[in-house]
Design a protein around this nucleic acid. Structure first.
Lengths: 276, 276
DNA sequence: TAGTGGTCTAGACCACTTA
DNA sequence: AAGTGGTCTAGACCACTAG
């Protein structure tokens, strides 16, 4: 298939008079841009072991010659692989295939949230009350102890089963309709959007494991002290003042963060059936 | 400070005869590349609210005029902000400031591993034995039940306190010195590198919360059923065959994944002290 | 049709590494 | 000094969106 593949331009875009874009004539085979095509080829070579971890790749100028593209385009292609964590570059030395390294893995919170972005998921407001900031809340929201805050508790349900328990302390500010707006929320989209929708501008997030206390366990229909994934958040206003501090407690059996290291499988090529 | 800042070139590199690089003469003030400088300026404008969530940014050509750089350079600058999740681009429509969105947050595993990459952390091999694959192990490693595997258990200690418990099933293969090499490992660097060092090429990772069973709890000196952050891994050979399946069980009080949403604070500007 | 972002060219000079 | 990656230019054409 993609195999050797020199002269990328001929098979993709390029302004070379012939071929505005390959095969738009029959609407098949999504045309690839040269940089994507090159990235795919090099990734495939890494996957197949033509370039092995620690190896230095051919220099950029060599690649330019091989693929008949300009330096900028070749560079763009390599940037894709750098971005994927597959290779790393060192000025003056070269571009190297990275060995498997746990450290470079990244997880997207999207993987978590899309699990509760389902339409079947409903938001149930458990309680909403104004309170006086405890010492801890005051510290997190940079208030003086005893100042007014609003305390919200919500339960996210799917098919009448609880999956996430959320609670949150919000600085009380009569000028801002933040709280009123939050009380209206009954959908997940609304909940997630609400954080960004009202002047909130920055946030700090933290994911860790917790044991559910008896109240939370009961709400989530889990055994007492069951483990849960906790997503803690603090949101800030434009001027840097914290306005919200809260936690999403996610049932451990429903939520995880996943990712892949190394060259992914680009196309078909189902890489197995493996049974030794 | 960075403020308005038109004509980025004059204050940074550029080939404009004058100024090879600003202020190399007294070795102060790390010179910025134009694209970095522009990204900083635009990020600052977002942070200060000059461009607000949902707003369309000036078009690329306008920015080019303002900063006196070429389209490619301007584009590079915006790419930085796209990468940070601060703005998003839509072909034919424009570039927009993103509202706060939980979904786009990313966590780096590096944040986890650097917490145990400390020199003070030691690796203790608890046991190493050849076993026959159970149904579950066989399924994960794509073996037939009863085939030979190696089972390793390790404890990571800091200051004589256990922080991570790792165990792992490895396909037994006399040709490969993988297991032998793993047995030698006494440092963290060695452990993390070992995954990449022996032909392993790809991996799937998963992070979730678990309750420690009594053995694990005892080893980690935690109460029974304490919550822990579990990092599960499966590593594959070049040809796609799985060779290792294991878990890092991390004490919940020692490990978390953290990240920030929205425009970070670029330079000084300590954005506080906040007490209302 | 005008305006926007997306890609690409064919060079150039720079900073860094290695011999 | 030679070779490598890093940045930049001053345009060009394309695909997409919206009036």
């Amino acid at each position: 298939m993609t195999g050797v593949g020199s002269d990328v331009r001929a098979s993709a875009s390029g302004r070379s008079a012939l071929s505005k874009r390959a095969s738009t004539s029959r609407g098949e085979a999504r045309a690839k841009h040269p940089y994507q095509h090159i990235a795919d080829i090099v990734r495939e070579r890494i996957r197949l072991g033509a370039y092995r971890p620690g190896d230095r790749l051919p220099s950029e100028s060599r690649f330019c010659s091989e693929f008949h593209v300009s330096p900028m385009t070749l560079r763009r292609a390599l940037a894709v692989l750098v971005d994927e964590g597959l290779v790393s570059t060192e000025q003056g030395r070269g571009t190297f295939v990275r060995a498997l390294d746990l450290g470079v893995a990244t997880f997207r919170l999207h993987d978590l949230t899309r699990q509760w972005m389902d339409d079947a998921v409903q938001v149930r407001l458990l309680s909403a009350s104004t309170t006086r900031a405890s010492a801890r809340v005051a510290e997190m929201l940079r208030l003086r102890q005893g100042q007014r805050t609003v305390y919200l508790r919500r339960l996210l349900m799917r098919d009448d089963h609880p999956i996430v328990y959320h609670h949150e302390h919000i600085v009380y500010d009569a000028r801002r309709p933040l709280v009123e707006a939050q009380l209206q929320i009954t959908s997940i989209e609304g909940l997630l959007r609400s954080f960004g929708g009202h002047g909130l501008h920055r946030g700090d997030l933290r994911v860790f494991a917790v044991n559910l206390d008896d109240k939370a366990a009961q709400l989530l229909q889990e055994p007492d002290r069951a483990a849960a994934l906790c997503l803690e958040h603090v949101f800030y206003e434009l001027d840097g003042a914290p306005v919200s501090w809260g936690w999403f407690l996610c049932r451990a059996d429903q939520f995880s963060l996943e990712t892949r290291l190394g060259p992914g499988v680009t196309a078909d090529d189902p890489e197995g059936p493996w049974t030794r």
